[in-house]
Simulated scan of single mutants.
Amino acid sequence: MSATVSEFHYGAVTPITAYLMACLGSALGLRCTTRSMRRRPGQRRWGWLLLGAVSLGCGIWTMHFIAMIGFSVEGALVSYDPVKTVLSLLVAIAVVALGVFLVGYRGAGAVTLGTAGLFTGVGVAAMHYLGMAAMRPGGTVHYDMPVVAASVVIAVLAATAALWAAVSVSAVWATVGASLVMGAAVSAMHYTGMAAVNVELTASAAGRESSTSLLAFLLVMLAGPLAVLIVSAVVVMFDPEVMLGSDDWENGADRSAPLAASGAQSNMFSRTQGRR
């Protein structure tokens, strides 16, 4: 029999929290990528690109599984395969890294951006449905394929917009605005994909009630990515070139140059007077 499923078992808490995590991962990914683009020729930028990719990938994955805390199947106990769950996290980081490194080293040309956005978007959708494949809802999961296709299109568009913003947006407030939009796009992809889900319960699953074991499992799985996001946030906050937009940073450098020159002239004048 077909079961009644819900995305909002805990009300608005899970979608709002999931959205905020997607925004956080997006903001960190954008600032780290922006920092890498300001490296001088010959300097290594892969470290900042890697940190940005990990932050963005963890943010997207965390958004997905926080949202899944609110997923419930009436009359059945939902559980997850831990191996497939961890694999979905690795897929999220890998596909985001592919896109970030492409645009980070080759720029935001139309061909590069389109290719990177396509691969990353399809990869993010693969992460979502791999995470769904890890779910054991006490029955068989069926998908409405046109809705699945719509979720993949949203993922590709969101990934392309994110990669474009990563190499085009430099000011801090512009990054915040882009992160809010990207968080909304990632959330839209997730809930569109979940709208395609239909669960057919098995006879043995019917009548079983949910337990707190699912919540405990997901919280344990979320601990690692959340720790990564916190560390990334600390790194970003203590690097002035990440926190300042390129214009602000360059203007600050321009203002400091005359002051330094003035100080040097003053010191030279003082030494000359002393000799006299």
Rank of each mutant, 00 (worst) to 15 (best):
M189N: 02
T85K: 01
A195S: 15
L118G: 03
F217S: 12
V95Q: 01
G224H: 03
Y19C: 08
S170K: 06
C23Y: 00
G57Q: 00
A158W: 06
A165L: 06
I66F: 03
M127T: 03
P146A: 09
V186G: 00
G99P: 07
L56Q: 02
S6A: 13
H142M: 12
G104D: 07
R39N: 08
G123V: 08
P15H: 05
R276A: 11
L30Y: 08
V147M: 14
M135N: 01
L215T: 15
L218T: 08
V152P: 02
L130N: 04
A3P: 09
M221S: 09
R31L: 14
L102F: 11
M21A: 09
S266Q: 11
V100D: 02
R31W: 01
I230G: 01
A133M: 09
L24A: 10
N198A: 14
A264G: 05
A206C: 08
A27Q: 03
W173H: 09
G193A: 14
R39C: 11
T212E: 12
E250I: 13
V242N: 06
V228K: 00
V95A: 03
S213N: 10
R275V: 15
A27G: 07
V172R: 10
P137Y: 00
V197Q: 12
A205G: 15
G47T: 13
P82M: 07
E200N: 09
C23M: 15
S26A: 15
L56E: 00
I230F: 14
I93G: 02
H190E: 03
S170A: 11
V236D: 05
Y80C: 02
L90N: 07
S246G: 12
Y19K: 05
F119C: 11
A162V: 11
G70T: 04
G114R: 05
M243E: 10
S262V: 09
A27P: 01
S211M: 08
N198Y: 09
A53V: 03
T160L: 09
V242R: 08
R31F: 01
W173A: 10
